[in-house]
Design a binder for these strands. Structure first.
Lengths: 326, 326
DNA sequence: CTGAAAGCGCTTACAG
DNA sequence: CTGAAAGCGCTTACAG
């Protein structure tokens, strides 16, 4: 028994021919190690958990792909949870994760200050925050500079000649969208445009939500107006609503999305969008997490990527390519 | 210790005031049960696993949502795996699942006959096949009638006056797409149209794949042609390619997608598509699985839903509403 | 209704 | 390099 265990965990300690005998026996008996027993005895697991805000958004799927790739390359299996932006669901997931005694946690948190996450971290579980900055002292985090994304979007619209704006975002507690909105406002301020020239619409973050937001904008504005959306799904809905109403994109409604999903280029009028390194976000986070789990000399890092504007037909052409700034 | 355990697992055996003392103590100590130890001692877990063909496809996300809802309502946590249509990845997932000693498995298998799945079932793990029929003797399965979906799509295109066709699908081993293609062929035969009037294109099942397929079709056909796509992502790409080339939808290229994603109605020309009850697929499968896990008198079931045609602008109008047939 | 005891299937020092 | 022994944190009959 102990030799079998050694063979599984530290094969170099077992004589080669003993090893092959064990190997054959295991194969014949169809032996599959009991994960829970291994974990209980060894005191650690090869599990890491990923909790994501919204699996229906392709953004997080790409992130998950990045996580999964580096995890499996390092021998970890990742259990995926979808909090669906609900604090209750997040808490359920976190509880399941605590009981699983995973080795590490990757989470894109619902609220600003989750007591559960604080507790989990205090218990010593290696945790990296995803798509959300945090203070380096508390642990690693990997995010994209949302404020800068908002500035880039705003400056692009301003360079295109727009003077009135709308922001379409998810619920107010969504930090990412709040920062993007702040960025837009900063750009407006930089151009001497008053806050009163900005309409803010909150909607469920989906194509359907974007359709509703678009209808609201149609009712509240004659255009021309620059519409900055918190994600591409919303932007797709807004564009659809505008076109269905017989208004023009970009002439009446100039639209900038966020995430630059593959889908963004397949709409009737291909969308200008703010690209984020989604896969890299996930793979970098996983890399940091595994380093924290495995190496004693681990140093917390706070990684922040810069977003990039991809100009397409949903905004008027400008001279200076927006993608280059910032 | 034993009383604590009883309190956790069978509270009715513990005196109320002992119970509340335990409760308070657990809270103060921040006690979290050790899942692996529980599982090892009890010999069972509250885990079920879901292995899905392609998480990047919103279809499976909706399915997963259905699964997740009924699972959590019954106290199970579901671990989600993405095989990405790769036999290797599927096998890795299945191995991780075996080691986890989950209580049940929901899987949309990559190939036709997976030896791993056969072995898992032979080992007595309750397993229901998702989106894939199977013989009732082997276990439960929940699927949608893909052949009928192909017939409905074909008859709709024929009723719209098309006489030449194309099928755009994923790789040949994908059973679902094969059955849909067979359905299309059956409809063509029923209308006396020769197989030689059918072009078949295989592509990666994404918008990008659809773009490539669309370009190939543009090169090989002047239209009018009826294009039946294995899923909406492909259809979105095909439509985009056709419109970009300056050809008309539905006049030159009539397009039918599959899945009826929300996205299908947001393209430049809203897509006609074959709708599947995605959420119900998942929730029904989970219900059957939990029944098999929990009730001794479980009877295997083979559930098959019927798909439904949703006519939009990417196909010419017909007199008889396609959705009513079949 | 409550406590002492064995055992779930492994891993890990520890002697040989 | 290999085998006997304790122990991981629980659950489950089993006596009290």
């Amino acid at each position: 028994m102990a030799t079998v265990s050694n063979f599984l965990n530290r094969p170099q300690l077992v004589a080669p021919n003993t090893g092959s005998r064990i190997d054959e026996a295991m194969r014949q008996l169809g032996y599959v190690p009991h994960g829970a027993a291994r974990q209980l005895a060894a005191g650690r697991s090869r599990l890491i958990s990923l909790v994501v805000l919204d699996l229906a958004n392709p953004f997080f799927l790409e992130v998950a792909r990045g996580v999964e790739d580096v995890a499996s390359r390092n021998g970890y299996v990742v259990t995926l949870f979808n909090s669906d932006d609900s604090p209750t669901r997040e808490q359920h997931a976190l509880q399941a994760i605590e009981e699983l005694r995973v080795s590490g946690l990757l989470i894109s948190p619902v609220g600003a200050h989750s007591t559960m996450i604080g507790r989990v971290r205090a218990d010593g579980l290696p945790t990296v925050l995803l798509d959300r900055g945090g203070s380096k002292s508390e642990g690693c985090s990997v995010a994209v500079d949302d404020h800068s994304g908002g500035v880039v979007a705003g400056e692009h619209l301003i360079a295109a000649g727009l003077r009135r704006f709308a922001f379409v975002g998810g619920s107010t507690h969504l930090q990412q969208h709040r920062a993007r909105l702040r960025g837009l406002k900063a750009a407006m301020r930089g151009a001497g445009i008053a806050d009163s020239d900005l309409i803010i619409v909150r909607e469920q973050m989906s194509v359907a939500g974007g359709l509703r937001a678009g209808e609201e904008l149609l009712a509240r504005s004659r255009g021309p107006i620059g519409v900055f959306c918190g994600n591409d799904l919303l932007a797709m809905g807004v564009e659809r609503a505008v076109l269905t109403a017989g208004r023009r994109v970009p002439d009446d409604f100039a639209i900038v999305g966020y995430d630059d999903l593959t889908l963004a280029s397949t709409t009737a009028v291909p969308l200008t969008s703010i690209a984020q390194p989604m896969y890299d976000l996930g793979s970098t986070a996983a890399r940091l997490l595994i380093d924290e789990i495995q190496s004693a000399g681990h140093q917390h890092e706070r990684v922040q990527f810069k977003p990039q504007l991809i100009a397409r037909d949903s905004t008027p052409a400008t001279d200076r390519p927006g993608a280059e700034r910032h």
